[in-house]
């Protein structure tokens, strides 16, 4: 299924996040990630929702339903050609430092901490696919724990 991103700006009022997540449950939208942060304008929050959906009408429905909330200022769909979708993963891995070296340059990652010879905590940033590819290449079997932020997106 196609992955879609929706960007919404909303008043930072109590209960807005609750409303959005309730809408997702009620309408049974197939949501992948949901990230929220403050926008540059004070009092406004910025929310990126990604979902898997092939049907354009369904995505339109999500947008229309979000627009209906009195707190929501604007909503639009972002497509990959005209926007950046990025996320960050923080990964604890059991992997020899040597093995990691080979990925420098090819992937955008940073070693936050080396806890012992084999235990590393890394931070990887990039598109979801890029992070997936990195993890795949390093080897899923090395991963002890992983935290991913979910996607945030910005229009070009």
């Amino acid at each position: 299924m196609k992955r879609r991103a929706i960007l919404a700006f909303m008043l930072n009022r109590p209960g807005v996040l609750n409303k959005v997540s309730m809408l997702i449950r009620k309408k049974m939208y197939n949501v992948d990630t949901l990230t929220v942060c403050s926008a540059c304008k004070p009092g406004i929050s910025r929310m990126t929702i990604t979902l898997k959906e092939d049907d354009d009408a369904k995505v339109q429905q999500v947008i229309r339903q979000l627009e209906k909330f009195t707190e929501v200022v604007s909503v639009k769909e972002l497509d990959t050609d005209h926007s950046y979708w990025r996320e960050v993963a923080v990964v604890k891995m059991e992997v020899p430092a040597k093995h990691l070296e080979g990925f420098h340059g090819r992937y955008n990652f940073e070693v936050l901490e080396q806890k012992s010879a084999d235990i590393h905590i890394l931070q990887v940033a990039g598109s979801t696919r890029r992070i997936d590819a990195f993890l795949e290449e390093v080897g899923q079997e090395h991963i002890i724990e992983i935290a991913r932020t979910g996607v945030t997106a910005l229009e070009k």
């Binding site: 009408a57 429905q61 229309r64 627009e67």
Partner: peptide, 8 residues
């Protein structure tokens, strides 16, 4: 009047 009802 309610846009979310159109094409629903």
């Amino acid at each position: 009047i309610d846009a979310s009802e159109i094409n629903k």
